[in-house]
Deep mutational scan, measured.
Amino acid sequence: KLETFPLDVLVNTAAEDLPRGVDPSRKENHLSDEDFKAVFGMTRSAFANLPLWKQQNLKKEKGLF
């Protein structure tokens, strides 16, 4: 399991300012399950079932792209 970080560490943070080991294209993977659901309004599995373009739009909207 990946290390999780608080939302404010990941949202609207440039790649070079992210904690070590965080993939800038997969910031959402480093949210706790609770934060993930609070941000996206759905579970990880529901998010994973969305088309890629919709996932990317949601990530942009939430500052996690």
Rank of each mutant, 00 (worst) to 15 (best):
K1N: 13
K1V: 12
K1L: 12
K1P: 13
L2S: 11
L2W: 15
L2G: 11
L2V: 13
L2P: 15
L2A: 11
L2D: 09
L2F: 15
E3F: 09
E3W: 08
T4A: 07
T4W: 10
T4S: 08
T4H: 10
T4Q: 08
F5K: 03
F5T: 02
L7E: 03
L7R: 05
L7I: 12
L7M: 08
L7W: 08
L7T: 03
D8Y: 12
D8F: 12
D8M: 08
D8T: 09
D8I: 10
D8G: 09
D8P: 05
V9I: 13
V9Y: 15
V9N: 04
V9H: 05
L10P: 02
L10G: 03
L10F: 02
L10I: 04
L10A: 01
L10R: 01
V11D: 03
V11C: 08
V11M: 13
V11E: 05
V11W: 06
N12L: 08
T13A: 10
T13D: 06
T13H: 08
T13E: 05
T13Q: 08
T13W: 09
A14L: 11
A14T: 11
A14P: 13
A14Q: 10
A14M: 07
A15T: 13
A15K: 09
A15R: 09
E16Q: 09
E16Y: 04
E16S: 09
E16M: 07
E16L: 07
E16C: 12
D17W: 05
D17E: 14
D17H: 08
D17N: 07
D17C: 14
L18A: 04
L18M: 06
L18V: 06
L18N: 04
L18D: 05
L18R: 01
P19F: 02
P19Y: 03
P19G: 04
R20Q: 15
R20G: 15
R20H: 15
R20T: 15
R20P: 15
G21V: 07
G21C: 09
G21I: 05
G21R: 03
G21S: 08
G21Y: 08
G21Q: 08
V22M: 03
V22D: 05
V22A: 04
V22T: 04
D23H: 05
D23F: 03
D23W: 02
D23M: 02
D23I: 05
P24Q: 07
P24L: 06
P24A: 08
P24K: 06
P24H: 06
S25C: 15
S25K: 11
S25E: 15
S25I: 10
S25P: 02
S25Y: 15
R26P: 01
R26H: 15
R26G: 06
R26W: 07
K27W: 05
K27Q: 04
E28S: 01
E28N: 01
E28D: 02
N29A: 14
N29W: 13
N29C: 10
H30G: 03
H30F: 09
H30K: 02
H30N: 06
H30C: 04
H30D: 03
H30P: 02
H30E: 03
L31N: 01
L31C: 01
L31I: 08
L31T: 01
L31E: 01
L31G: 00
S32F: 03
S32E: 05
S32T: 14
S32K: 07
S32H: 06
S32I: 05
D33A: 08
D33S: 09
D33G: 06
D33W: 05
D33I: 06
E34M: 11
E34F: 10
E34R: 10
E34G: 10
E34S: 12
E34I: 10
D35F: 01
D35A: 06
D35C: 06
D35Y: 02
F36K: 00
F36D: 00
F36Y: 02
F36V: 01
F36H: 00
K37M: 15
K37E: 15
K37H: 15
K37T: 14
A38I: 12
A38Q: 14
A38Y: 14
A38L: 15
A38F: 15
V39W: 04
V39R: 01
V39T: 09
V39N: 02
F40E: 00
F40Y: 01
F40K: 00
G41Q: 15
G41M: 11
G41I: 03
G41E: 15
G41L: 11
G41D: 12
M42F: 07
M42L: 08
M42G: 00
M42A: 01
T43E: 13
T43M: 08
T43G: 10
R44G: 02
R44V: 05
R44S: 06
R44T: 04
R44M: 06
S45F: 13
S45N: 13
S45W: 12
S45G: 12
S45A: 13
S45E: 14
S45V: 14
A46N: 11
A46Q: 14
A46W: 08
A46K: 12
A46R: 11
A46C: 10
A46M: 12
A46F: 10
A46P: 00
F47H: 00
F47W: 08
F47T: 07
F47A: 00
A48N: 11
A48M: 12
A48G: 09
N49I: 11
N49C: 12
N49L: 13
N49M: 13
N49Y: 09
N49S: 13
N49Q: 14
L50M: 12
L50D: 00
L50C: 04
L50A: 02
L50G: 00
L50E: 13
L50S: 03
P51S: 08
P51H: 04
P51D: 07
P51Y: 01
P51E: 08
L52S: 10
L52W: 12
L52R: 12
L52K: 12
W53D: 12
W53N: 09
W53M: 09
K54W: 12
K54R: 12
K54Q: 13
K54V: 12
K54F: 11
Q55V: 03
Q55P: 00
Q55F: 00
Q55L: 01
Q55G: 01
Q56H: 11
Q56E: 12
Q56D: 12
Q56R: 11
N57Q: 12
L58C: 06
L58P: 00
L58D: 01
L58F: 07
L58S: 03
K59P: 00
K59L: 06
K59S: 03
K59I: 04
K59F: 03
K60G: 07
K60F: 10
K60Y: 11
K60T: 11
K60C: 11
K60Q: 12
E61F: 07
E61I: 12
E61H: 09
E61S: 12
E61W: 07
E61K: 09
E61M: 11
K62N: 15
K62D: 01
K62L: 10
G63F: 06
G63R: 05
G63M: 05
G63D: 06
G63A: 04
G63W: 02
G63L: 06
L64S: 02
L64A: 01
L64H: 04
L64M: 07
F65Q: 13
F65D: 15
F65M: 12
F65G: 15
F65E: 13
